[in-house]
């Protein structure tokens, strides 16, 4: 079925199961990527994908179409992932490192460098606030614009822009000392 996101969301809200399926199939990969970046491992990311769409289904009546469905579902995914991260903190668990995907033909140097970088990045991401982490991941990896990030975070555009900047500033501060060694 060739629905736009808005039309599919409208249909899904009326109880059309097929329309919701279209939305799930269209946005699953993007939600997985965000969840993986935020939670740091595949299994948690898979759980977050399920949780995100389950919450989206239950909250469809709240989707007013002002933001795109993608932005709206990103917001849910970010919140689900943040809930998981908070729960981990409460339980005293450490945020797992990013299980970086292997490139198709990695050289030993590249694998080593990638692991080093991933380790440093994990630690640096942990130093960010929730808003900074979410803003950075959405801007840097998902290519969301400031307006979309603002909607996901539920803040104004200048606050969203500042969150991205603060995140970059903190990452730079954490990465640069080790940068020379890793380079």
């Amino acid at each position: 079925m060739d629905w736009t996101d808005r039309a599919a969301a409208e249909e899904a809200r009326k109880g059309n199961q097929l329309a919701f399926r279209v939305l799930v199939e269209r946005h699953s990969r993007a939600v997985f990527r965000l969840a993986f970046r935020m939670t740091g491992n595949e299994q948690d990311a898979e759980d977050m994908v399920q949780e995100t769409f389950l919450r989206a289904f239950k909250q469809l009546h709240r989707f007013d179409g002002r933001a795109s469905f993608g932005t709206w579902v990103y917001r849910i995914a970010a919140n689900c992932s943040l809930d998981l991260i908070r729960a981990r903190r409460v339980r005293g668990e450490r945020q797992p490192g990013l299980d970086t995907a292997a490139s198709p033909d990695p050289s030993p140097e590249r694998v080593t460098r990638s692991r080093q970088l991933a380790g440093i990045l994990d630690h640096a991401l942990e130093q960010l606030t929730e808003a900074e982490r979410t803003a950075f991941l959405l801007r840097h990896y998902e290519g969301c614009n400031i307006d979309q990030i603002a909607k996901v975070l539920g803040v104004g555009n200048s606050a969203a822009k500042h969150s991205v900047f603060r995140a970059v500033q903190k990452l730079r501060g954490a990465l640069e000392p080790a940068w020379g060694g890793a380079k």
Binding site: S28, A101, L121, L171
Partner: peptide, 22 residues
């Protein structure tokens, strides 16, 4: 520095992933 961070990829999910999620 920021470009280098982009090389951090995520595990790939195939085109059938959406259907699996559903």
């Amino acid at each position: 520095m920021l470009d280098e961070l982009l090389s951090e990829s995520v595990p790939e999910r195939g085109t059938a992933y959406g259907a699996e999620v559903w």
